[in-house]
Design a protein around this nucleic acid. Structure first.
Length: 557
DNA sequence: AGATCTGAAATGCA
DNA sequence: TGCATTTCAGATCTTA
């Protein structure tokens, strides 16, 4: 106000202002809107000291209290209310939320109002239940509404508790569930168990609602995934086919959630060869991404289980995996995809629940897939084996040093088909390094985790489970490579003595190892390695150097 | 198989 | 809220 201006402009400005004020004063709630806007200017500042913000909020609340529902549908005012929700304290937020009770349905459908609903769901715990109850009876309509659908999804996935979720999704089952909510968070399974006669009707409604969602582009909502999963779990063959026709092209969009991934798995399971082909085609561009997803990777496993056309699988899916093999092998979830091809449903790598989930589909697979499971998986393995072997041969150190990728190395050595020698040679080359030249940066593979275990298990793979098929004769080759340091490895306090012990137990290397240990040791002394080991153990507590003791016991036999 | 770590969800506090 | 704290389950690592 204290700005220096010429008299002329001053007058002009004053005139303008008067005119503006005149016009404004005719609008309803004028005495509220303009002061509120002034306050808002301050309130929305990012860096406003706390006491000042509290003061602004207090004044704002005095203005708007009792008027919230009158002004909420004007966009400028709805922005102000949004700010109030953001910056107000709990009591102030609850005042606003309380005044809007009864209007949440309309607000959710309004372009501006829906942001208010999002904020209140977020900030006002106390009103969540009331808001969700306003949606009851209208869920089927709202889920297809352009603005309101996101609110329903938000309420369902983020704010509703188990009972409220059930209440929302029950409306997918038909009109009668709009009014009478089945209490105690009943799922479709529960409801069908209690009213078997209503099944046809319920499934029909569920199907129609879900189809509507597909068409309205709400496939990515978790509430829809839940509905789809329930549908697939209870539909008959005909119903499943009908849904598949709508779904097959969109399966790729739903596999980011737990239930969505399960639906995609069921789609693959029930689909005809032709539909499977269509599904693979839509997934091809995203294969690597899917492999690395928490839930998506399970869809890959299911694909390996059910698609009979392994040539198509190789071209559309495995070729994409091969391109990014190292990346996938090192990934938390991606490695499971590769491990599944190598080791099948090993509980070592797949949780019991996931194995059960896959096993549950095997009965259906008997009808929907023709190829023998063993033949199918060996064909996939044949395709991917050469890439795995050459990956290990070229990136040996990088892969073995990471615990997760090490699993892939291990299973490849055991199960990959074709010539594994390049990988064997690369692993042997690392083991053959002089242990005294190892540094903390690059420790010797037989004396550091997790590679020590890898080598020990490979030594054992000739004679005890898990067996390499066919045998790698890894022990024999390893013994030749490390014989100069055998005595050194045998007397360490770490895990390398266990590798020597395994060499001693392996029938292929037992004799030679025994001979070597009973021969004279390193250059400095004239005593045998066996004697050196006895010295190491002497006077030590029983629980130390256990492996060294075991070596001595075995030698004594 | 058991110990440990990690991340997510639930809870409590200011 | 925002923040810390707690709890819990699942995943990972361990070691003889």
């Amino acid at each position: 106000m204290g700005i220096q201006t010429t008299t002329a402009t001053k007058e002009a400005n004053a005139q303008k202002k008067a005119l503006r004020d005149e016009r404004r004063s005719h609008k309803p709630n004028a005495e509220l809107i303009y002061p509120a806007k002034k306050l808002w200017e301050k309130l929305r500042l990012k860096e406003l000291p706390k006491p000042e913000r509290q003061q602004v909020m207090k004044e704002m609340m005095e203005l708007i209290t009792g008027k919230v529902q009158e002004i909420i549908f004007k966009h400028d005012m709805s922005r102000i209310i949004q700010s109030c929700l953001k910056h107000g304290n709990e009591a102030q937020r609850n005042v606003i939320a309380g005044e809007l009770v009864g209007h949440y349905l309309t607000l959710s459908k309004s372009m501006y109002g829906r942001f208010i609903v999002v904020k209140i769901l977020h900030y006002c715990q106390k009103y969540r239940e009331a808001i969700i109850k306003e949606f009851y009876g209208k869920v089927r309509q709202l889920i297809k509404h352009k603005e309101a659908s996101t609110i329903i999804e938000d309420a369902y996935s983020t704010y509703a508790n188990a009972a409220q979720r059930a209440g929302l999704i029950q409306e997918f089952y038909g009109p009668e569930f709009r009014i009478f909510k089945v209490e105690d968070k009943k799922t479709l399974s529960d409801i069908l168990a209690q009213n078997p006669t209503k099944k046809d009707n319920i499934m029909k409604h569920l199907m129609e609602t879900l189809k509507g969602c597909m068409e309205k582009g709400t496939v990515e909502f978790s509430i829809v995934h839940r509905g789809l999963l329930e549908y697939f779990e209870h539909a008959d063959a005909k119903g499943i086919q009908e849904m598949l026709d709508v779904m097959k092209e969109q399966a790729v969009e739903i596999l980011h959630t737990k239930e969505g991934a399960q639906v995609a798995m069921l789609c693959l399971l029930h689909a005809s060869p032709k539909d499977r082909k269509a599904m693979l085609k839509t997934m091809k561009p995203f294969v690597v991404k899917i492999c690395k997803e928490e839930y998506g990777h399970m869809v890959m496993l299911r694909m390996f289980d059910v698609v009979d056309d392994t040539v198509l699988m190789s071209k559309a899916i495995l070729a994409e995996i091969v391109k990014e093999m190292e990346d996938i092998a090192k990934d938390k979830y991606g490695r499971r995809v590769i491990l599944y091809l190598l080791a099948g449903r090993s509980p070592k790598y797949i949780s019991p629940q996931s194995i059960e989930l896959l096993a549950k589909g095997d009965l259906v697979r008997a009808n929907t897939s023709k190829k023998d499971a063993a033949v199918r998986s060996s064909e996939l393995l044949n395709y991917i084996s050469p890439s795995l072997i050459s990956l290990i041969a070229t990136k040996t150190r990088a892969l073995t040093s990471e615990p997760l990728a090490c699993q892939v190395v291990f299973e490849t050595m055991l199960h990959a088909t074709g010539d594994r020698q390049p990988a064997v040679d690369a692993l042997l080359a690392l083991a053959a390094e002089n242990p005294s030249e190892a540094t903390s940066e690059t420790p010797h593979v037989l004396m550091s985790m997790p590679t020590d275990r890898l080598y020990k298990t490979l030594v054992q793979s000739d004679y005890k489970a898990p067996l390499a098929e066919p045998s790698l004769h890894f022990a024999k080759a390893l013994l030749t490579k490390i014989s100069p340091y055998l005595g050194f490895f045998a007397q360490q306090s770490g895990s390398s003595p266990f590798i020597v012990l395994a060499l001693l137990e392996n029938p292929e290397t037992a004799e030679e190892t025994k001979k070597a240990l009973q021969a004279k040791g390193s250059a400095k002394g004239s005593i045998t390695i066996q004697k050196e080991l006895e010295k190491v153990v002497k006077g030590k507590p029983d629980n130390e150097f256990k492996a060294v003791r075991l070596i001595l016991e075995t030698l004594a036999k």
